[in-house]
Design a protein around this nucleic acid. Structure first.
Length: 450
RNA sequence: GCCCCUAUCGUCUAUCGGCUAGGACACCAGAUUCUCAAUCUGGGAAGCCGGGUUCGAUUCCCGGUGGGGGCGCCA
C-alpha cells in the first residue's frame, strides 16, 4: 500500500449529489490507482446534524456505485472516529493550540451577540499549488480585506467547516485533497490554517464542477441531481459510474465504455479537465442502454430481480425460470424499472394486453384467429419444444397457406404476450412453455375478439 | 462589487506548434430484421474576439468577452 491517503467527506443532508458522487469516485479511483487508502468521513459537525437515515443514504449510494472505502464508518481505522460529531475534543485541542500560539483569539461580537473564536488570517496573497489548476495565487478580495480574520468556532461552541476540515485532514493524514472547484477560493484559508498548526499542507486537486443542462452548477433542485434518482429509476450502477468517470476526466483515447478495472489502471489527476462539464442525460441514457445489453446475465438478473420483487411478480417463481425470462428480455428494457412491464406475461396469465396492439392485430381481422388455430394444431403436435423447432413449425403452415411467416408471427406474439413488441418470438414461446402457449393460442379468440 | 477558475461541433471530449481539426451522444438519410430495439453505412455540425511570439498557431503569452465558482457564527 502506497502512502497516498485521500478522503471523501460528505455532509449527511439526506441526499447524495451526483457531483459528490463523482468526487467520491475520483478519490476512489486515485486511491486504487496509486494503491493508497480511501477514507470516508462524515461531516456532521454536531449531533443535531447527525441523522442516521441521512448517513445511510451516503453509504447506500457509495456502495451502489461500488466505491468501497478502506477506512471510515462501519469499517474502522486508526484515525477514527469518522464522524465529526464524535471528534469535538480533537477540534477543541487544536483551537486551544491556535489560541496559545496567538494565531486565534476569542472575540465578542457586539452586533450578533456571543463570543466566537477567530483566526488571524494573513493579508498576504497565498499560492495554492494545485495538481489540476497549476499555481493559483489568491489575494484577499475586497470583503475579506475589510476583515481578514474569520470565525473558526461559532458562538454555540461548534467549530466551522474550514477548521474541522483542516484538522481532520491533518489527523487522518490525508495526502491529497481531491474536491470540487468550488473550494478553490477557500483553499488559501485552509493553507493558512495548516501553517498556523505547523503542518505541511496536503496536495490539492480541484476538480471541475458538474453543470446542469442549462449551464449553472448542478443544484439539489435540478432533475437528476440526486444519486438515488438513478438507483430508483433502475439504472445499472456500472452505467452511472462509467458516465461519471467521463465527466471531466478523459482516458485520452476514443473509448467510451470502460470497466472499473480499466479506469483504475488509467486514472490519474493530470487527465482531469480544467473546465466544468454539463450533465448530458442523453449520453447517460445511451450508456445505460449499452450496459443493459452487455451486462453478464447473472449480473443482469441480480439487478433486475429487486424490481420484479417490488412488482410482486416473483412469488412462487422458480429461480431458474426467472433467470431464463430475464435472459431473453435482456436488451429490451432500457431501465431495470421497466423490466416488470416486459416480463409480466411470463409470470401471470392475467397479464395486461396493449389495446392498440390488440386492435391493430385482431380488429376486423377474424382471419387471424383462424391462423392461430392452425398454429395451435402445429404446435400441439410438436415433439421438441425448442426455439428452432418452434420456428420451423411455424414456417411450415405459413408456407402451405401461402403467407409470409410474419403474418403468423405477429398475431401469435400478441396472443401470447399482449404486446406488438418484444424479444424474439420463438425464444419467448420456448420459455413460456408448451402448456401456456397452447392455452393462450386456444384462448385468443375469446380474449381478443372485438 | 471584489477575487479565483475556465473557453474545440448543440453536449462530452482528442490534438505533446504543422489539420483535409479525430471520436462519442443527439440529429438526418439509407441498409438490415418476425415486432421493437440493436447493428451497419453515409451525412450535416466546432477552434469566442482582438493583439502579440513564431516560417507556421486550436495549441504559447497578454487583453477583452462569455460561462462557472467563491467572498457566512453553511458545508
Amino acid at each position: 500500500m502506497s502512502s497516498v491517503r485521500v478522503r471523501f467527506a460528505p455532509s449527511p443532508t439526506g441526499f447524495l449529489h451526483v457531483g459528490g458522487a463523482r468526487t467520491a469516485l475520483f478519490n476512489y479511483l486515485y486511491a486504487r490507482h496509486t494503491g493508497g487508502t480511501f477514507v470516508l468521513r462524515i461531516e456532521d459537525t454536531d449531533e443535531t446534524r447527525h441523522v442516521e437515515e441521512a448517513v445511510q443514504v451516503i453509504f447506500d449510494g457509495l456502495r451502489w456505485l461500488g466505491l468501497d472505502w478502506d477506512e471510515g464508518p462501519e469499517k474502522g481505522g486508526a484515525c477514527g472516529p469518522y464522524f465529526q460529531s464524535q471528534r469535538k475534543d480533537i477540534y477543541r485541542r487544536h483551537v486551544q493550540e491556535l489560541i496559545e500560539r496567538n494565531a486565534a483569539y476569542e472575540f465578542e461580537d457586539k452586533e450578533k451577540g456571543g463570543t466566537v473564536v477567530k483566526f488571524r488570517m494573513t493579508r498576504e496573497p497565498i499560492t495554492v499549488p494545485d495538481l489540476i489548476c497549476g499555481n493559483v495565487t489568491r489575494a484577499p478580495n475586497e470583503t475579506e480585506m475589510a476583515d481578514p480574520d474569520f470565525v473558526i468556532v461559532r458562538s454555540d461552541g461548534v467549530p466551522v467547516f474550514h477548521l474541522v476540515n483542516v484538522v481532520d485532514d491533518i489527523e487522518m493524514k490525508i495526502t491529497h485533497v481531491i474536491r470540487g472547484e468550488d473550494h478553490l477560493s477557500n483553499t488559501p484559508k485552509h493553507i493558512a490554517l495548516y501553517r498556523a498548526l505547523g503542518v505541511e499542507p496536503p496536495k490539492f486537486a480541484h476538480i471541475p464542477l458538474i453543470l446542469n443542462p442549462t449551464g449553472s452548477k448542478m443544484s439539489k433542485s435540478d432533475k437528476g441531481a440526486a444519486l438515488h434518482e438513478y438507483m430508483n429509476a433502475g439504472y445499472a450502477p456500472e452505467a452511472v459510474r462509467n458516465f461519471l468517470t467521463l465527466l471531466g476526466w478523459s482516458p485520452k483515447s476514443d473509448v467510451e465504455l470502460l470497466t472499473l478495472e480499466e479506469t483504475v489502471a488509467k486514472f490519474d489527476l493530470p487527465q482531469i479537465q480544467r473546465h466544468n462539464a454539463r450533465f448530458d442525460h442523453e449520453k447517460l441514457h445511451w450508456m445505460q442502454g449499452q450496459y443493459m445489453m452487455k451486462l453478464a446475465p447473472e449480473r443482469y438478473a441480480e439487478l433486475g430481480r429487486p424490481f420484479l420483487a417490488k412488482a410482486g411478480l416473483l412469488e412462487g417463481q422458480p429461480e431458474d425460470y426467472v433467470r431464463r425470462v430475464l435472459a431473453i428480455v435482456q436488451g429490451k428494457p432500457k431501465l431495470f424499472s421497466e423490466v416488470p412491464d416486459w416480463t409480466t406475461c411470463f409470470f401471470r396469465d392475467d397479464f395486461a394486453a396493449d389495446p392498440e396492439a390488440v386492435t391493430k392485430t385482431f380488429a376486423g381481422q377474424p382471419g387471424n384467429f383462424d391462423l392461430l388455430d392452425k398454429l395451435l394444431v402445429a404446435y400441439a403436435a410438436l415433439g421438441e419444444w425448442t426455439h428452432p423447432a418452434l420456428d420451423a413449425a411455424l414456417r411450415e403452415p405459413a408456407k402451405s397457406l401461402g403467407i409470409k411467416p410474419a403474418a403468423l408471427i405477429h398475431p401469435c406474439r400478441v396472443a401470447v404476450s399482449g404486446k406488438a413488441i418484444g424479444p424474439s418470438l420463438f425464444r419467448m414461446l420456448e420459455v413460456l412453455g408448451h402448456d401456456r402457449v397452447l392455452a393462450r393460442l386456444a384462448g385468443a379468440r375469446e380474449r381478443f375478439k372485438s
